[in-house]
């Protein structure tokens, strides 16, 4: 079984991010790393391929400046190869523009049975790309998978909901977005790290994908960032003095938040 995993390479969340005041977008010109939320999809894909007894995991990513650092992490985990789309014309792409690129790149992977994504990236958070990719590829889409099994040509998913989960079955090929609860990602082993060195990364441009530059980047964006503002400083918390009845006030506070 062949699984494609869409992975995003993002600025290290450990370093404070910065917005470009001119473009109003996140600065992404430094070193990028594998979005942790994508490591779950990579791990799930590796486990599904192992369970199927054959096949391989292919990564698909779109990133500026030919960035491969995050891809290397996923290749070291065990993915077989990667397609990277990197092109100056992609700067300013919105979610749909990104989905067009990813969909075209996925089409180049022969015999893809399943496409996995995270539910959303940890830097952009639109959470719309997986469904857009599925729409563009005309494939069924299942979101928020907390458990995945493949049975022949069917994927069985436990789909996380607020109340619990839905059991969903869907024919393959399909696009499935996975939550952080789906599997525990492995750490790259030393052998995996050394093997990643010689795994192929196919770097493509917008033209290579058969897309016109006017469909992507700033030119193709259907959305406009009108303004950006500093997040408000966190307000001071409420201090409850314990005079013997503090627990009642805490219960009332939590009840008000509807978390009880």
């Amino acid at each position: 079984m062949n699984v494609v995993v869409c992975v995003k390479q993002i600025p290290d969340p450990a370093d404070p991010g910065a917005l470009d005041p001119t473009t109003k977008t996140l600065k992404r010109d430094g070193k990028l790393i594998l979005d942790e939320s994508d490591s779950y999809g990579v791990e799930m894909a590796l486990q599904l391929v192992t369970a199927a007894g054959g096949g391989e995991v292919t990564l698909v990513s779109m990133a500026p400046n030919g960035e491969v650092s995050g891809l290397r992490t996923a290749l070291a985990m065990g993915a077989a190869k990667a397609i990277l789309v990197s092109d100056d014309a992609l700067a300013g792409s919105d979610a749909l523009g990104t989905a067009k690129v990813l969909a075209k790149a996925i089409e180049r992977v022969e015999g893809a049975d399943l496409i996995l994504t995270a539910t959303e990236s940890s830097d952009g958070y639109t959470g719309t790309v997986p469904e857009q990719v599925a729409g563009l590829l005309d494939l069924p889409s299942v979101t928020f998978a907390k458990h995945i099994e493949v049975d022949g040509s069917t994927v069985k998913v436990q789909r996380q909901t607020e109340a619990g989960y839905d059991d969903v079955e869907c024919p393959l090929p399909a696009v499935v977005s996975v939550t952080a609860g789906v599997v525990e990602p492995r750490y790259p082993s030393f052998k995996g790290i050394m093997a990643a060195k010689s795994k192929p990364v196919d770097t493509l441009t917008v033209a290579d994908l058969g897309l016109d530059a006017s469909q992507v980047g700033w030119a193709g964006a259907g959305q406009e960032i009108v303004s950006i503002e500093e997040a408000p400083a966190r307000e001071a918390g409420e201090v409850i003095e314990d005079d013997g009845t503090a627990f009642e006030k805490i219960v009332a506070y939590l009840d008000n938040l509807k978390v009880l």
């Binding site: 992490t73 750490y187 082993s189 790290i193 990643a196 060195k197």
Partner: peptide
Amino acid sequence: SPEHELLRASVREVA
């Protein structure tokens, strides 16, 4: 090298 960076990162995360 990228391999040394990955080695550092993986060991760091485990530890």
